[in-house]
Design a binder for these strands. Structure first.
Lengths: 337, 337
DNA sequence: TTGTAAGCGTTATCAT
DNA sequence: ATGATAACGCTTACAA
């Protein structure tokens, strides 16, 4: 631990009492100009930095926002984190990130680490904590949950309409003449995965396109399952002219799986993803994908919390962000059969 | 801020003094079994969590390691962060991440935020802080700098041999018959960028291939500059059969730039990157790239710090991690001219 | 305007 | 084995 210069050292150096130092530094209460100057000089000379822990202890607020992220290296959640970072910038609050690794125990431990540190607010990114745990947390500290809709915690949840997003993607394909549209679904225990599947089915139904279970492959949200999906379908000679993947990472895998079998996107198969990761602008070809406003959600979560922190009585309105389709080059008209 | 249950509440509930509570909880000093049990029960019943700030204040260590990362959403640094996370797991120490955004002021502010929080050690990931600032920091707290070699701080720096990595990549291309090898360089103010350029030139020189400045494009490490590089060369009718990019993100851009001009990798142009980002396994085609052991570096940095924290007298040996080439499908024999 | 002193939640020293 | 009590570094009444 850093042996820091303390307020006592400054007091001695400036020849004033410690309370004067504190007042001069915090600048609320009037202090004689000459003393103030002596304090400021001493502060600079000695390289003083206030001890945040001590301040937090006495002030009752630590000026930190705890962020429970699942995996610091996940492209999607790092976008959200970037937004949080931006949303908190200049507010005096500092984010502190901990990882839950999508493991319920790790998540609980991470939350504990946060509450032990007396964070003033918490942002939870996805994860598997159950509704009860999240509600308990919410009772203790201002909370926003990003990317999930938790029963009984509606005013604290920030997510997009996944059903709508998937509906958009699938409808886009249908309008271009595709009828045999395969879907790589996400982990069924995750709400967004089932919502996206539902949006896909809804779009099919609305257009009168029959749903074929053989065209749905259950993946796990990473690239490898995209490859597996292609292998699975091709191994059974499934017919399809387009694929809608429940996230971009699986879409990348689908692209590679197709490439391995000598099929091209979009010439042979059209491909749509979900999330609009930054990398999707630069894939071959650039990927048409549902734009998930990850960055904006992070920023909104942060600002919302700041508002509540500054005025605990503020109304807790958390707007739902619009979801759109980023049309790029991975989709083409279906060839007539 | 969370109004937590305090040790006093436990003491009252268990009918013992606060010192007994502390002792029962920390378990170093003997405590009567029945009292210990009463304390443990009260702790559970009241949902007590110790206040980390108060503990840090009195103990003199906060059990936190500060990590200055540049951009929480950068693929490369998030891999390193993931390694740090893994390296610290189970040690009782907790990483706290702050962002410097590659801005010297932001970085300095972030470091200040860390020292104010009395972190026990610091890991700096890249960045632009000058050697003096880093040495000052090193004087106050155990430090590891990842991804940079700082003059006068050699035993605290952890990086790979970038010259060697670039040499490996370029030599691989030469051995496959390529003679006209273009290079997308990184930001010249960053040491790793100039090292990679040097490795490229060294390999050329050693093989007796003339260096052509027209084949070097100065990029800025992001995808867009890869596209610009291709436009630049093609606009001047430069001849090349292979491209070596100073990082994977620029290599992705090169791939897309080529695609836009109707040229294929590796059929028309061979392509090699640097970093071996997780995504590079899934690009079209999977990218041959210099494997930068990002994850391992993070883990090593963490473990090194833990060793020093547990035994301040421990020798400060920071081994250099080997750099290798991940050969995938983006490279092919040069066609005879 | 300034200083003294109490107190934030915890650990550690000192008696007992 | 246990309980007062003094720190840790800071802010903030309360006095002066």
């Amino acid at each position: 631990m850093i042996r820091n210069v303390t307020i006592r050292d400054i007091a001695r150096e400036a020849g004033v009492s410690i309370s004067t130092v504190s007042r001069a530094l915090n600048g609320q209460v009037p202090v004689a100009p000459d003393k103030r100057q002596r304090v400021l000089d001493a502060t600079r000379r000695l390289g003083y930095e206030p001890n945040a822990a001590a301040q937090g202890l006495v002030r009752g607020r630590t000026m930190t926002v705890g962020v429970l992220t699942q995996d610091i290296a996940s492209p999607f959640y790092s976008e959200v984190s970037r937004g949080i970072d931006a949303g908190l910038a200049g507010s005096g609050y500092q984010p502190i990130f901990v990882n839950g690794h999508w493991e319920i125990q790790d998540e609980a431990a991470a939350i504990t680490a946060l509450t032990r540190r007396q964070v003033d607010a918490v942002i939870v990114l996805g994860g598997r904590l159950d509704a009860r745990q999240l509600r308990d947390l919410h009772a203790r500290v201002p909370l926003v949950v990003v990317g999930r809709q938790v029963p009984g915690l509606d005013d604290a949840c920030l997510s997009v309409d996944n059903v709508q997003g998937a509906f958009l993607a699938t409808t886009h394909l249908i309008q271009l003449g595709h009828r045999r549209i395969a879907h790589v679904a996400g982990i069924p225990s995750q709400r967004d995965a089932v919502d996206r599947l539902e949006g896909y089915r809804l779009a099919l139904a609305e257009a009168g396109v029959p749903f074929d279970p053989a065209l749905v492959f259950e993946g796990n949200f990473n690239e490898a399952s995209g490859i597996q999906a292609v292998e699975h379908w091709l191994g059974r000679a499934a017919q399809f002219s387009a694929v809608f993947a429940a996230n971009d990472q699986m879409a990348y895998g689908v692209g590679l799986g197709l490439y391995r079998r000598g099929m091209r996107v979009p010439e042979d198969v059209s491909l749509v993803g979900f999330d609009d990761l930054p990398a999707s602008q630069f894939t071959l070809p650039p990927l048409t994908t549902v734009h998930h406003p990850a960055r904006e959600m992070g920023e909104l979560a942060a600002r919302h919390l700041l508002a509540r922190l500054n005025d605990p009585g503020a109304p807790a309105e958390l707007p739902q962000l619009p979801i759109t389709l980023s049309v790029r080059e991975s989709v083409r008209f279906a060839r007539s059969p």
